[in-house]
Design a binder for these strands. Sequence first.
DNA 1: ACGCTATAGGTAGACAACCTACATATGTAT
DNA 2: ATACATATGTAGGTTGTCTACCTATAGCGT
Lengths: 113, 113
Amino acid sequence: MRPDAVRGHLDGLILAVLEDEPRHGYAIIEALQARSGGALDLPTGTVYPALRRLERAALLSGTWSTVAGRERRTYTLTRAGRHALAGQRAEWHEFSAVMDAVLRPVRAAGEAS
Amino acid sequence: MRPDAVRGHLDGLILAVLEDEPRHGYAIIEALQARSGGALDLPTGTVYPALRRLERAALLSGTWSTVAGRERRTYTLTRAGRHALAGQRAEWHEFSAVMDAVLRPVRAAGEAS
DNA sequence: ACGCTATAGGTAGACAACCTACATATGTAT
DNA sequence: ATACATATGTAGGTTGTCTACCTATAGCGT
């Protein structure tokens, strides 16, 4: 998949992997890899700024902790974040339907299906 | 649908509506509206630059004509354009599958389906 | 005659978001 | 000691879409 493909849909992806449990940035990247069967391998320079953006937008709340000597920032979905996730899912379904409708090859009128 | 949603997928949409027949810019916008059931209403400031970009990339070839006193630039898919359309379709299916896989709510292990 | 709408094409500048590349640091294995 | 995995982050560039304009003709209503 080309690098830019997730543009405009990254927020939904991040919110989705935080739905079941809070995760820190690195774990979010790994979760996206796992759930996508390896297709998504987002660079840290994409994910970390996005997390800060989502936190600034109050869709996530982040807390620092130290685990095995390493600093972690763990993000949890806020109530607004859960709401936004629902919205992202709805938008995705609409957009996906539009893409399918337009991309599907058109049959000439009267052509057998 | 939010305005920016098509980002990264516009090329595929345009190529798709040109697959069955050549069209000029205005007709492309109308075709996208029609095929999307009105969900896609792209501004000319988005479509015309995209057409020039696609022509520069040799995926489209454009020719001027005058119809009912108005200038038209009619775009036709080149061979490279058809090839690119196939690639866009493949990319879309992959991307769509990834989005579905990640966005789908996760069930806890052992939970009944 | 005048204005409005539909048709048809276009540019300029702003902005958002993602990318590449780099920087920092600790723990663990070789 | 060296390398890799873990973990977070910033700087700067690119790209594509958006908003907001501009130009022009045809046809309609008033």
